[in-house]
C-alpha cells in the first residue's frame, strides 16, 4: 500500500480512497470514481496520479491508462481552475448552445479544450449533460447553469473569477 506521506493525494483524499477500495466486492470497482476524485483534487491525471492509483488498486499503470482514456471527463493535461463545459448537443443547439459556446470563446479568448492564460478557466464543448429541458445548459466544474442566454455569460465568468480571487475551492 502506498505510504501516505508518499501519496500525491491529500491526507483526506488518501483516507477516502482507503475506504473506497474496501467498499466493493472487488477492489477494482473503485477505479473509475477514484480517477475522477483524483482529478478533482490534482487537476488532471498526471503520471504520478496514475501510478498511485494503480498501486492502490493493485493493477498495472497500463491498465489504469486503458480505463482512464476511455472516459471523456478524465484528462491528462491540466485544465483551468474552472472548467466551463458548454453543451451543444441537440436540445441545447436548438436553443442557442452554439451561441453560448461562441460567447465563451469570445470572452475567454480560447477555443475548445483551451485554457485561459491566467489558468482560471478552460473551455470545452461537451455532449449532452442531462439538462435538455432547461437548455441551453453548461457546467462549470460540477455546477449546472441552465436556461442561458449569451448575455449571461460575462456574469457567470465574473462569479467564478471572484471565487478564484478569493482562493475558493473548486465548486
Amino acid at each position: 500500500m502506498t505510504n501516505e506521506t508518499m501519496s500525491v493525494f491529500s491526507t483526506e483524499l488518501s483516507a477516502r480512497f482507503d475506504k473506497l477500495v474496501a467498499k466493493y466486492p472487488v477492489r477494482r470497482s473503485a477505479l473509475v470514481p477514484m480517477l475522477l476524485y483524483a482529478q478533482d483534487e490534482v487537476g488532471y491525471l498526471s503520471d504520478a496520479v496514475i501510478a498511485d492509483v494503480a498501486d492502490r488498486i493493485g493493477i498495472t499503470e497500463l491498465d489504469v491508462r486503458n480505463v482512464a482514456t476511455y472516459y471523456s471527463m478524465l484528462r491528462f493535461k491540466p485544465a483551468g481552475k474552472y472548467n466551463v463545459q458548454v453543451c451543444t448537443n441537440i436540445s441545447c443547439m436548438l436553443r442557442g448552445g452554439y451561441e453560448i459556446f461562441e460567447k465563451f470563446q469570445d470572452e475567454l479568448g480560447i477555443g475548445h479544450k483551451g485554457v485561459s492564460t491566467d489558468g482560471v478557466f478552460s473551455l470545452e464543448e461537451v455532449e449532452c449533460i442531462g439538462a435538455c429541458c432547461w437548455a441551453p445548459a453548461i457546467q462549470v466544474n460540477y455546477d449546472f447553469h441552465d436556461d442561458l442566454t449569451p448575455e449571461q455569460v460575462p456574469g457567470i465568468l465574473e462569479q467564478y473569477r471572484a471565487k478564484a480571487a478569493q482562493g475558493g475551492k473548486n465548486a
Binding site: 436540445s91 449532452c128 435538455c132
Partner: peptide, 11 residues
C-alpha cells in the same frame, strides 16, 4: 447514466 441527448428525467 442518463446520457441520451434530449433526456433529463432521472436528473
Amino acid at each position: 447514466d442518463e446520457s441520451e441527448p434530449g433526456t433529463c428525467k432521472d436528473h
